[in-house]
Write a protein that binds this DNA or RNA. Structure first.
Lengths: 338, 338
DNA sequence: TTGAAAGCGCTAACAT
DNA sequence: ATGTTAGCGCTTTCAA
């Protein structure tokens, strides 16, 4: 396969020759311009099909035509959160015939900078990024690149161009207030590698602020320097309860994966929820809501963030006005684990 | 932002002029050719930095330079399976400075064909695809495109160029044999939208074949025409047990998401696992293994499939020999739910 | 080690 | 409605 030296792919020139028109007419026809007559359109289409012509967008974009590529930089694909965002993005982009060109930064500003440089070198139509501590260079490149740039997930900081997301600090704060109103007083926290995930940090900040408002503070805290997972949450809760801190009445987890792990730990060792211990998470994943007792959590609208970000790029490209900030909000879910 | 008419980005020509060399020398320097002297290299790099030069790979690729884009077509991003594959792919590609350009086919052959056409029009260096019933046109385009093409997930059919995956039929068969050896006899199945997911179908085929070997057949079967999810598995098991089929002693689910839903249903209604009912899934997800009772399942090596596929593309590009078929295998996990 | 020439395949701009 | 001209910014020969 692919061994015989290919007889060079037909170009627009060949197609035009076969159809008996000029190159530019063939180009217009194939791109669906409405100035070509139906007859020429058909001739060109037939020529293209019979020759097996395949458009070369490299040349098209270089010559000043539009690109349909959108750079997308995400910190990770390890849990379902960013795939959900990507799904929303892809969905909306695909409807417009656009494609995401993907880069994963691993929460590393240096890698992120490298990715930005790399992706921009393809002259994409737009860029969507879930920032991981952008460097000065990163900001400069994006600000100077003259394309729509959407920073996603968080709206707690000022964006270079546009931002779509929610306030993670606000989510933590709302959850704290909700739980305090329900009567909980002795709070503990189980988190994952928080140094790199500043959105989790923002939630914890907000949560802590909520406790402070009521004159409370954490009675215990376990942070494990690993990526979040169900297994890690299970282990984390086990550590927390084994430590000599005051027995908490509610444990706030850095996200739902972790919280589900906490629920499983309780099931395994016979702690009854929510009487003996209450649990809250963040994200509103399917898995948490399908538990025998649905998880108390905050639903983040991940797919909607992706869709909205894509919409912002597309709108800007079509010359429409776009909001600088879009808050997709969050939804507190008062489940059965609290 | 982005409003002032941009003063046109500096091109290689500007960089070369600043460095006092020719365009081609600047090009060679910036691409890390080892024929330029260290002095010229430095001059060029300085010029590039001071001008804020950003390489244009559109032009580079059009002029015959290499592309570092790899088309990736997946059927879905809705559960963690394909993101895991994508993660493996991205990881390996990124190390080589390559980027996936993504398309989601939604298990639809027509969309898939459109995506192939679209992605190929960017003249990527390679293409990785989890096929969803490729059309004749799709096969023709891929066979004629003269680039490395890797079909992933399944190795039960003959690939156009290369294939990386596992035998889903074999996985179903192995699970059936294992369970029969453990003494189970009354099997039922709960599945999701199987018409579109032919890998799930292949597993079921294999599983059924295993039953046949032992002179057994399914005592019950529920198939719900929706994407798989924990919630759906829970619902599916509820329906199965409410139907008038013979009471099964083991339920095989179309995947782990579904199976975990089944486990949750049992927990909720007080069916004890595995005494009253046994459950088996497929994929070996973290969530299943973190259950109070770890799930019996077959681990698929998803990230490894992605990594291997990327490696195949990269190898082929560097002129090395590549295997036509790579079987990454699967691992049966005898958990506590059976 | 460096450079000059020639194009990659297409599209915008300006005719006609 | 169609065509002509002139590049887009780079890299591959081929030469010096």
């Amino acid at each position: 396969m692919n061994k015989e030296k290919s007889p060079r792919k037909p170009t627009l020139f060949e197609v035009a020759a076969h159809a008996g028109v000029s190159e530019i007419t063939a180009s217009r026809a194939l791109r669906g311009s409405n100035v070509v007559t139906p007859e020429t359109l058909q001739k060109v289409q037939e020529a293209a099909t019979s020759l097996g012509y395949l458009r070369n967008r490299l040349a098209g974009a270089l010559a000043g035509g539009p690109s349909n590529q959108v750079g997308v930089i995400l910190p990770s694909l390890s849990n379902i959160v960013f795939p959900d965002v990507l799904k929303g993005l892809e969905d909306r982009l695909e409807h417009a015939g656009f494609h995401p060109v993907l880069g994963i930064s691993n929460y590393d500003p240096e890698q992120e900078e490298q990715l930005i440089r790399n992706l921009l070198s393809w002259r994409p139509a737009g860029l969507v990024i879930a920032p991981s501590g952008m460097t000065e260079n990163s900001r400069t490149m994006l600000a100077g690149a003259d394309l729509p740039v959407v920073e996603i997930m968080d709206i707690d900081t000022d964006p270079i161009d546009m931002a779509v997301g929610m306030s993670h600090r606000g989510a933590g704060l709302a959850m704290a207030r909700h739980l305090i109103a329900r009567g909980y007083r002795r709070f503990a926290y189980v988190g994952h590698d928080i140094a790199r995930d500043n959105r989790a940090t923002a939630r914890l900040d907000g949560f802590t602020a909520g406790l402070n408002e009521a004159g409370l503070k954490m009675v215990g805290c376990v942070t494990l320097v690993e990526p979040s997972s169900v297994a890690l949450g299970r282990r984390g809760l086990n550590m927390l309860l084994g430590s000599d801190c005051a027995r908490p009445d509610l444990v706030y987890f850095s996200n739902d994966d972790m919280a589900v792990g906490g629920v499983f730990h309780c099931m395994a060792v016979g702690i009854s929820l929510p009487d003996q211990l209450a649990i809250a998470g963040f994200n509103g994943l399917d898995i948490g809501q399908s538990l025998p007792t649905p998880l108390t959590t905050t639903a983040s609208h991940r797919a909607r963030i992706g869709e909205t970000a894509a919409a912002c790029v597309l709108k800007r490209l079509s010359g429409e006005e776009t909001p600088r900030m879009t808050d997709v909000g969050f939804t507190l879910i008062a489940g059965g684990t609290s």
